[in-house]
Design a protein around this nucleic acid. Structure first.
Lengths: 149, 149
DNA sequence: TTAAAATAATTGCAAGTGCAAGGAAATAAA
DNA sequence: TTTATTTCCTTGCACTTGCAATTATTTTAA
């Protein structure tokens, strides 16, 4: 029976299988690290806050596209930052559909304080990787992403 | 000001940044593919169902550990499969804490029907990858995972 | 000028996930 | 035996996320 059996494929041979675990554990690690430093922000909030600071005054869609999050998610995260007084929104007078998003002074201070913390846990997954290996990895990942577009 | 500025790190240099996108798009692709073939099961349900079929009669913790999902998630997915008549649970008479999980005939038929579909979309992310590159990738991912343990 | 289409942001909802807590049964220790 | 610990599974809750629908505004086309 089943003479034409398709070749079996184990989960352990699927890159995505590992990636799911890596992403999950990495997020746990990051969450934990932020918490232990009393960051007061989640991983996503951190990423968006940092991105705002690098594009101060840009719109929510711009923030969203640079962090690769959809519009509703971006809205919600920014609102969380605003309610924590780390960011502020201001209607763009030249296009009243848009909000210009800014980092507050408190937000900037938080960034300065957390930057070294973040830099540190970001290195953990690639501990022991040579520069070449890191580039290789990134390149492979970019190709995968392209395949999925 | 800020003379000792930490070296900036762009999101585009973070492997995890790509992995999140890859995982997300891959899941979308898989979901869509299953739906277009009227699978009637989600991606996670598929993975668990397949895993059950390869370890017929094993307990939920065993299923969970082989798919790397936690106990509550495993319970819920299995219950979904049971309610769809694709799997069945049966108390282990020798250890009445455990349930032995089985694939039903309907479940087995579904697996046979979906296997080629799944095999196909699983190849998409690594299209154009040589065997060597795939091995390299897996190896790098395994090292990352180890770093995170 | 008016109508249609596109864009920015928001809201609501269904579904999934992680985590903590709890119940039942088995095992180990007292 | 009795008690304590461990294991397997389940339940509840808070939180996130993807998706569809909606509003307000701007841009394009008629």
């Amino acid at each position: 029976m089943q003479g034409n059996k398709v070749q079996e494929q184990r989960l352990e041979q699927l890159p995505v299988f590992y990636m799911e675990q890596i992403v999950r554990r990495y997020r746990q690690l990051a969450t934990q690290s932020l918490k232990s430093h009393h960051a007061g922000v989640s991983v996503d909030q951190w990423v968006v806050l940092k991105q705002i600071s690098e594009n101060n005054g840009s719109s929510q869609v711009e923030i969203g596209s640079s962090t690769v999050k959809d519009a509703p998610t971006t809205t919600r995260i920014i609102d969380q930052l605003v309610s924590k007084n780390l960011a502020s929104k201001q209607l763009d007078p030249e296009d009243r559909r848009r909000y210009m998003v800014f980092v507050t002074e408190k937000g900037r201070q938080l960034i300065d304080r957390l930057l070294p913390v973040v830099q540190e846990y970001r290195q953990i997954p690639v501990l022991g990787f040579s520069a070449t290996e890191q580039k290789q990895l990134i390149s492979l990942l970019q190709r995968m992403l392209k395949n999925l577009e």
